[in-house]
């Protein structure tokens, strides 16, 4: 039984204009995606900016209300929940944000920030809260004596640790990591990745790891989904996806990652043009306008995500 099951999730943002807020069209940020996340597993979600990966993360938590679909978390359909029930579920489904600067309230000190989820959900004394906060700070590698400092007194990496401590405060089952390391320096990035990996082992956490950096995603994930224009192009185990990518987009994406080894000279598949607007996605396969292996059928018929064997799912007419 999967911990989190997302089924045909859609989020369309209406484009309104004018005095009477006429809806002119829709941005199909997420256009029908499905996946599952098991206990203790990490699912990587990669894609370029504008592919909808962040919207997926926020829709699951209903920080953005999805347009359609089902999200089953721990045997509860999140989209059916009332405000108050949802508030309670959020104790066990948490999120870590990309920007360690904007994700912490500048007017609150570390103690208040980490204590917020505890105060929201548990009726415990001030002393107990303080103890728990100190424990959490230690757990993520912060000095508990810094409890009354303000976010601006910390470096980016330390701030990200504060965000992680806040997410851990209520012993969640799953954490949505929305680009948790992309704003950090290289040496700090490794610290945070290691911290996330260690916490996962200790607490049997599940991660939905959203990122644009393919090397980071490969490193931390058990399975990886590649998104393009609001859909999943390919989903497979990390090894399978990186060694044997089937979708032409995944191949181009992987070949574009610069390898930190000057001895290796690969032939790159340089895609032409830019990602089309999600307001007006291309007909058929949404990648066909840039696909180096485009066939006639690609512009006419939409491919469906199908199993190419061994849990390697791909959405392409070539397979």
């Amino acid at each position: 039984m999967a911990l989190l099951e997302v089924n045909n999730l859609k989020k369309y943002f209406p484009i309104k204009k004018g005095v009477f807020s006429r809806t002119l069209g829709q941005v199909r940020a997420v256009d029908g995606i499905s996946f599952t996340l098991k206990r203790g597993e990490t699912l990587g979600l990669v894609g370029e900016s504008g592919c909808g990966k962040t919207t997926v993360g926020r829709s699951i938590l209903r920080l953005i209300e999805p347009t359609a679909g089902q999200i089953t978390f721990n045997n509860q359909n999140l989209l059916d929940l009332e405000r108050e029930e949802l508030r309670k579920v959020r104790a066990s489904l948490q999120i870590i944000f990309q920007d360690p600067f904007s994700s912490l309230d500048p007017r609150m000190n570390v103690g208040q920030i980490i204590a917020e989820p505890i105060r929201n959900h548990l009726k415990i004394s001030r002393k107990e809260i303080r103890e728990r906060v100190a424990y959490l700070m230690e757990r993520v590698g912060l000095h508990p004596e810094h409890i009354s400092r303000y976010p601006h007194e910390f470096s980016g990496g330390q701030r990200q640790r504060i965000g992680i401590a806040r997410a851990l405060a209520l012993n969640p089952l799953a954490i949505i990591c929305d680009e948790p390391v992309s704003a950090l320096d290289v040496s700090i990035q490794a610290q945070v990745i290691n911290l996330l990996a260690r916490l996962q082992e200790q607490m049997n956490l599940s991660y939905l790891f959203i990122a644009h950096d393919l090397s980071v995603v490969e490193h931390i994930s058990d399975r990886v989904a590649v998104m393009y224009l609001g859909r999943i192009a390919e989903l497979a185990s990390d090894q399978e996806l990186y060694q044997n990518p089937l979708h032409p987009y995944s191949r181009a994406l992987l070949s574009a990652v610069p390898i930190p080894d000057p001895e290796i000279r690969r032939k790159k598949i340089v895609l032409q043009g830019d990602v089309p607007s999600p307001m007006d996605p291309p007909s058929g396969c949404s990648f066909h306008t840039r696909c180096p292996e485009c066939k006639e059928i690609c512009s006419q018929e939409e491919p469906i995500l199908k199993d190419a064997g061994d849990g390697h799912w791909v959405s392409c007419h070539l397979w």
Binding site: L63, Q94, I95, L104, P117
Partner: peptide, 20 residues
Amino acid sequence: DYVEAAKAVGTRDIAILIRH
């Protein structure tokens, strides 16, 4: 993001308005 974060940890709207 910190307002989203507060929502994500289950803070009530009134507390978000006053505290954040």
